[in-house]
């Protein structure tokens, strides 16, 4: 697959269809995101190591792709996208953070191993899959069994222990492609006290989980970035399932479908929801 992708990218660059291609570069065993503009460099392109390309650059709080686009307005950018990259792209475009028109998405699927590392339910781009086969994703968090057996009080104690480990590195937020707010509630001093460890439980972690209830693209970056292995996505899984069931919506699947929590298009008949309150 790698060679096919390299050939395809070479064609894109040679034919000047794109200004450059954002992908992962490898050298001396290390790897990092890179903007390929010369075809000779494509020998260093790698697909087996993951860095989210749609990363939200902190402390600027702008998306990398947005920054690239704003540096060369009107030019076309290629992105060698995994499933999560594509989903991030769609979610960001809905919120005006990137311009989809100037992006050439070259989608490829992850293997099962990678899907396991990220606990990814859809390890392939749903719209722009060009290389590889769709493989089965992971639909359950690795600690779900343990967690789901707890009662309400047990869950509270579970989180109290897990959140006490938090060292407030903001890694879960910094690594998240969807977190681009200029003013973040996690830093709001009225809401979360500054300079205190352990952090306030549960408001510090609640903010991001709740805000991403219908935005989380399941890339798994927040858990990878957490030095203390806090299983944050246990909550996300519950909420995403709920959103899917109630509003038939999964973030990142369709760039045209609006987020049901923030955009109310028509006054639909939703009396059934009252039952749940």
């Amino acid at each position: 697959m790698l060679n096919k992708i390299r050939d395809y990218c070479r064609d894109l660059l040679e034919s000047k269809k794109v200004e450059g291609i954002l992908a992962v570069y490898t050298e001396n065993g290390n790897y990092f995101p890179y903007f390929f503009t010369k075809k000779e460099e494509l020998n260093n392109l790698c697909i087996d190591k993951k860095y989210l390309l749609l990363n939200s650059v902190k402390p600027l709080r702008e998306n990398l792709v947005f920054l690239l686009q704003s540096k060369m307005p009107g030019k076309r950018i290629g992105i060698l996208a995994r499933g999560c990259d594509e989903r991030a792209l769609f979610e960001l475009s809905k919120r005006g953070q990137v311009n989809l028109d100037n992006i050439e998405t070259i989608g490829y699927s992850c293997n099962e191993e990678q899907a396991k590392i990220c606990t990814c339910p859809t390890p392939y781009p749903t719209v722009n899959l060009k290389f590889g086969e769709k493989v089965e994703g992971v639909s359950e968090h690795k600690r779900w069994k343990e967690f789901s057996q707890l009662d309400i009080e047990g869950k509270r104690k579970f989180w109290e222990k897990e959140f006490s480990k938090c060292i407030k590195c903001f890694g879960c937020r910094n690594a998240c492609p969807i977190c681009f707010c200029k003013e973040c509630l996690m830093e709001d001093r009225k809401f979360v006290k500054g300079g205190e460890l352990p952090v306030e439980i549960p408001s510090f972690h609640f903010v991001q989980r709740y805000h991403h209830a219908a935005q989380c693209i399941s890339c798994g970056e927040c858990e990878i970035a957490c030095p203390m292995d806090i299983p944050l996505r246990l909550i996300s899984f519950v909420l995403l399932n709920r959103v899917k069931k109630l509003y038939d919506y999964t973030p990142g699947m369709n760039p045209k479908q609006e987020c049901p929590i923030y955009t109310i298009k028509e006054e639909r008949n939703e009396e059934a929801l009252d039952e749940l309150l």
Partner: peptide, 26 residues
Amino acid sequence: LQGEIIGILPNKNHEISQGNLCIKGW
């Protein structure tokens, strides 16, 4: 980006970092 430092990415391929940083590092 264009000769300017815009941000930081933790190193996922490192025995100690493992893709993590503390707030100062970020």
